[in-house]
Structure formats: structure tokens, C-alpha cells
Amino acid sequence: MAAEHKIDALGQFELHPVFGELGRALHFSNSNLLMVIASALILLLLYVGMSKRAIVPGRLQAAAELLYDFIYNMAHDQIGHEGRRFFPLVFTLFTFILFGNYLGLVPGSFTYTSHIAVTAALALLVFFVGLLTALKVQGVKFFAHFMPEGAPVALAPLLVPIEILSFLSRPVSLSVRLFANMMAGHVMFEMFAAFTIMLGGLHLIGPVLGIGPVVVNMALMALELLVGGLQAYVFAILTCIYLREAVAH
């Protein structure tokens, strides 16, 4: 690649089957393997962390309890008393995305949250859970939300389509935000890493200049750690906000 002076920034997002023939037959890709690893780590954190059931928690138990309390308070504060019902969903979404983002930062692994199909599926799950809950809780009154209260009736033909459009665009923004953030970060990694390799072949001064992109990548890694946590948080808190609107009377 370096010799041809081309940067393959998108190759890292390619899906390929794992576990040889069996994986190929089951269409089980590297993306799914990372999902399994992330799920196993989440469950391991909770099961191993809470195995002692200590009154005074150790490090792992404190981490598990901190994660639990963090999401529980978020769900409870945002959705209200009804939040308890949706807490497992919010917890699953947050940890699934967080672990996906962070596992993707391990060199050589795969970031399943950088695939629009995955983030769109998660966003549609949130969208339909919110929609069904709203229809169940509010019934026909739910459709009244598309006409803002106190607005002049004459503006209805303008306002109602806008409100419907903004409601329908929620899963789009939710999925694209996560997907674009994760993809952009990983493309940047690949670009700067490729710069280093390209500079390495540049006469004598090249290997010295090549340190520059490595330093940039180190800074990017810090940024990506922030972005990975932030995007998981944003996804979870928006889920809570949508569900609060759904359960509100």
C-alpha cells in the first residue's frame, strides 16, 4: 500500500467471515465476533464483579456498581418513575455501544459501531420502543403532539408536517451521529498511520518526520477515548429523552 502511495482508509471497515468454513456458512463476520466479545465482557464485569456480594466493594465490584448506578440514575432522572421499566434497555444500549467503541480502539480489532447498519438497527429499536410505548400509554392523544400547543390553527398545515418530519428524523440523526463519529475517528487513525509509513520511505529525513503522525495518532487516541464514551452517553441519554416523551401523559 505504502509503496503505491495510496491510503486504504476504508479497508478497516470491511466485513469478512470468521471461524473459517462454519463462519462463512453462517455469515458470521468479524463485526459479530466483536459484538460477542463486548457482550461477554459486559456480563463478565457484572458477574465476576458482583460474585463476592461484598458490603464494602472491591475495585471490580465498585466499577460494576458505578456503571449500574450511573445508568440507573440517568434512566430514573430522565424518564422518571417509569424509568425503572426501561432501565435494562438503556443499560444494554449504553454498555453495548461503549464496549463496541472502546474495543474498536484496540489495534487490529473491529468497530461494529462504525457500521451504519448496526447503528441504524439500534436507533430503530429505540424508535419503535418509544413509538409503541407512546401509543400504549397515550393512545390517540399521542398524535396531538404533532400540533404544538397554543400555535395558531392557521399554521397547522405548515407545523404538522414539520413536527412529523422531525419525529421521523430522530432515528436517522441518532444512528448517523454514532456511525459518523466512529468512522471519522478510525479513518483519521488510518490516515495518520499511513502518513508515517509513507514518510518512512522518504530518503534520510523521512523516518524522523514520520514521528509527527505517530504523535498525532497518540493525541487522536485520547480524543477517541473521549468520543467513544461521549457517543455512548449521548445515545443513551437521547434514548431516555425519547422514552420520557413516550411515557408522559
Binding site: L15, H16, S29, S31, V36, L43, L89, T92, V118, A121
Partner: peptide
């Protein structure tokens, strides 16, 4: 690429299993 669609199918299965085990 069939894997693009199938990763969502497997992802749904894995997510559902994770959700059930967690909840």
C-alpha cells in the same frame, strides 16, 4: 455483501441475548 445484512441479524440475536441476560 451479504455480511452487511447478516451482521445486523447476528447483531440482533447477540443484542437480544445480552438484553435478556442483563435484565
Amino acid at each position: 455483501n451479504p455480511l452487511t445484512k447478516w451482521q445486523v441479524v447476528w447483531g440482533a440475536v447477540i443484542f437480544a441475548a445480552l438484553y435478556l441476560l442483563l435484565s
